[in-house]
Computed example of a mutant assay.
Amino acid sequence: MTASIRILVVDDHILLRQGIAGIVAPEQDMEIVGEAEHGADAIAQFDRLRPDVTLMDLQMPVMDGIEAIALIRARAPDAHIVVLTTYHGDVQAVRALKAGARGYLLKSSLIDEMLTAIRTVHAGRRYIPADVAQDIAMHAAEDSLTPREIDILALVAAGQANKVVARELSVSEQTVKAHLRTIFQKLGVGDRTQAVTTALRRGIIRL
């Protein structure tokens, strides 16, 4: 009999962890061997259990998923990690994949898709849903926002006026306005509201 795929589930919501356990339970080729509620806990559980596949949320307390993925892959370059997130954005997906994730899956996905992703990644292949892959490809040739531009956009998203943003970042208001013009151009938008909406959708910033 073929050994089961041993799965570690990492998410700060116990109901979601229980839901995944319920989905996996009937599958003869899978078993949940451990759970973790944040990234630091995930690293400790990974070291202890050495699971075949880790399902990793991104937004968690203590340590987020992307940092945990990078640290796990540094310890175990062959670790098979599938991101399981509510966030669709291409920028967030790219960050996760660069950190070392082998798969990217939305929590809204169908049960069959999650099971397929687990089996695909366990077999050594990547799993990225077609719509996420399309979004990544669509924006691949675009100039990404700089860290300073992201800082400015995050403050704008928080409702701060240009003069407040300037004071927070110790720059002139004209510098903020110049950065905003560049941000609008890079994102293909015409105003602050569109910039924030686009950045949130793509996972460039988070509220």
Rank of each mutant, 00 (worst) to 15 (best):
M1E: 11
T2M: 14
A3L: 12
I5A: 09
L8C: 03
L8Y: 02
L8G: 06
V10Q: 01
D11P: 06
L15W: 04
L16V: 15
Q18L: 09
G19C: 01
G19Q: 04
G22T: 06
P26N: 03
P26V: 10
D29H: 08
M30D: 07
I32G: 02
V33F: 00
G34I: 01
H38Y: 08
G39Q: 04
A42M: 05
I43P: 11
Q45A: 14
Q45Y: 02
F46Y: 12
D47L: 08
R48H: 07
R50W: 01
P51T: 03
P51S: 07
Q59S: 11
D64C: 07
D64Q: 08
G65C: 09
E67I: 12
A68S: 15
I69H: 10
I69G: 08
L71D: 13
L71Q: 15
L71S: 14
R73Y: 08
R73S: 13
A76H: 15
D78P: 02
A79I: 14
V82D: 06
V83L: 06
L84S: 12
L84N: 11
T86P: 01
T86E: 03
Y87C: 07
D90F: 14
A93L: 05
V94D: 01
V94C: 07
R95H: 12
A96P: 02
L97G: 01
K98W: 11
A99H: 03
G100E: 05
A101N: 04
A101Q: 04
G103V: 10
L105Q: 12
L105K: 11
L106C: 11
K107N: 14
L110Y: 12
L110R: 15
I111S: 08
I111N: 14
M114N: 01
T116A: 12
T116H: 09
I118P: 06
R119A: 08
A123C: 10
R125F: 13
V132H: 07
A133I: 08
D135G: 09
A137L: 15
M138P: 03
H139T: 06
H139Y: 15
T146P: 12
T146D: 08
T146C: 06
P147N: 10
R148K: 13
A154M: 12
L155G: 02
L155P: 00
G159K: 03
Q160D: 05
A166R: 03
E168H: 09
E168T: 14
L169K: 10
Q174C: 05
T175H: 09
T175S: 13
V176I: 15
K177G: 06
L180Y: 05
T182R: 15
T182C: 07
I183H: 02
F184N: 00
F184K: 00
F184S: 00
Q185H: 14
K186V: 09
G190I: 01
G190R: 01
D191Y: 02
R192G: 00
T193K: 10
Q194N: 00
A195N: 01
A195G: 02
T198S: 09
A199W: 01
L200T: 11
L200V: 10
L200A: 04
R202H: 08
G203W: 03
I205E: 01
